[in-house]
């Protein structure tokens, strides 16, 4: 069974691109997607993909709290 982190990394690889190129596997979990140059529309679309994959919903407040992918993983793990 893949860990939350592995599933998130896979979703990043499959769904996020910068200027038409995949974001890349090496993304640091502590890195903010904004610092990596992911535009905000893409970030919001990505949270919807994550919500579908993990079968839950994010409120806009939840989304505004995610500073980086690590925060997202922690949030998802806390939801069990």
């Amino acid at each position: 069974m893949a860990t939350t982190e592995e599933r998130i990394r896979k979703l990043v690889d499959e769904n996020l691109e910068i200027e038409g190129r995949p974001l890349g596997r090496g993304l640091d979990l502590n890195a903010s997607l904004r610092d990596a140059g992911v535009p905000s529309a893409d970030f919001l679309a990505f949270t919807k993909v994550v919500a579908e994959e993990f079968n839950l919903t994010f409120s806009p407040e939840d989304c505004s709290r995610f500073e980086n992918l690590g925060d997202l993983v922690t949030f998802l793990d806390s939801r069990g």
Partner: peptide, 17 residues
Amino acid sequence: IEERIPRRYLNELIEAV
């Protein structure tokens, strides 16, 4: 400001925002 670069996931973006 946004440069109008073509988007692979345009329909998903539209649905999201």
